[in-house]
Amino acid sequence: MAASSSPYVTLISNDGFEFIISRDAACVAGTIKKMLDPNSLFAEAISGRCTLGMINGVVLEKVCEYLYYNLKHKGEKDVPDMEIPPELCLELLMAADFLHV
């Protein structure tokens, strides 16, 4: 029960990298938000650990960066764009589609 109220959650990539990020940031992504919904009784919600089997560490790191970037600029106007390396953008695009961000 402690995990579901912790302000931090863990995202795990398919190659085993773990990213511990704040719950607020994680919930920017619709899919992760649903995974972590305390009412869902999903294993992820109880343990506070989300294993994202189709996303590798490099991409997931960028995703985490985006989640914080999004949180930081919430409600602002004229937000500067985040840097995305072109070689990552297709994989990132698929991850974004999956995560609903």
Binding site: V63, Y66, Y69, N70, H73, K74, G75, E76, K77, D78, V79, D81, M82, L92, L93, A95, A96, D97, L99, V101
Partner: peptide, 8 residues
């Protein structure tokens, strides 16, 4: 546009 663009 309000807030940041979506990752997509």
């Amino acid at each position: 546009q309000i807030g940041s663009k979506s990752l997509q």
